[in-house]
Design a protein around this nucleic acid. Structure first.
Ligand SMILES: [Mn+2]
Ligand SMILES: [Mn+2]
Ligand SMILES: [Zn+2]
Ligand SMILES: [Zn+2]
Lengths: 136, 136
DNA sequence: CATCATAATGCAACTCAGTTGCAATGTCAA
DNA sequence: TTGACATTGCAACTGAGTTGCATTATGATG
């Protein structure tokens, strides 16, 4: 490619960090913060700089491979974006995270809101906090 | 009071900062971050240190006068806790915030979830993002 | 009103998550 | 094999939020 080329849809390069991060997220299947992801990677013998992690996650996110999740603890969390759209049950005691799907429910709600509030809903954030079966 | 006294339900002292902060939150009626609150206070001629603001908000929160809200932008936001429980329609373009109530809806959802997931829901976070009537 | 215990404040220094500039390294198409 | 350019690591930085401590203000008590 002789310069002056295709800038869009740049395919990600197959690097060690890229592969490892994606694999951890696919296997662990929970929203992980940078430090968590980093130590998971270390456990597998892959040492990655935090800057690289953030940059990879940003790329994975805009490519739709990963979703950002917020538990309100001031940390960015990311999870694999394979399965169906769902929400989380976060145990405030042991920090475990379970998933829950609300098929149709939110869609219906959003339609109603969009209509009578004249607000075009593009996204939502819904997470539940409480005690898991082991902690309550 | 001769020391060794009532430690609970400490009534807050009537200070300039306390009054001003509460008044701004009651009037502006939107979830404000520290910097926003701080400049609103300045506009009214009240200069308050950010440490004081955070400490006041913490006190107001545990006293139930204020609620913490998270828009996922890495900032703690607080709003007056007078009205009914509600959620927000946040315009991602102009940053305006509207409110929306979902009477019963969430309660019903939570009951169903609590039952078949054996998870005791104590709280939830639900905010909507999109385009307000002026921006869409 | 005067006293004074103690709550509230301001400031500086700190922590911690996340970002940026830049030089060094790695990837992959040609 | 080569070279353009994407990715990485590191150090320095930003910005939100917190903490220790000395100073000031509140309000209960007498
Ligand atoms: Mn999930
Ligand atoms: Mn509100
Ligand atoms: Zn638990
Ligand atoms: Zn708008």
């Amino acid at each position: 490619m002789t310069a002056l080329m295709n800038r869009s849809a740049t395919a990600p390069k197959e690097t060690k960090a890229h592969r490892a991060i994606l694999r951890v997220l696919e296997e662990d299947h929970a929203p992980l913060a940078e430090t968590e992801l980093r130590s998971r990677l270390l456990q597998r013998g892959v040492r990655v700089n935090k800057t690289t992690i953030y940059r990879q996650l940003a790329g994975l996110k805009e490519r739709g491979a990963v979703k950002e999740v917020d538990f309100g603890d001031g940390k960015k969390r990311f999870e694999s974006n394979d399965g169906e759209h769902h929400h989380h049950l976060v145990c405030t005691k042991c920090k475990s995270v379970d998933e829950v799907q609300l098929p149709g429910e939110l869609v219906r709600l959003e339609k109603a809101i969009s209509k009578n509030k004249k607000f075009k809903i593009l996204d939502h954030a819904l997470e539940f906090f409480g005690l898991c079966v082991n902690c309550k």
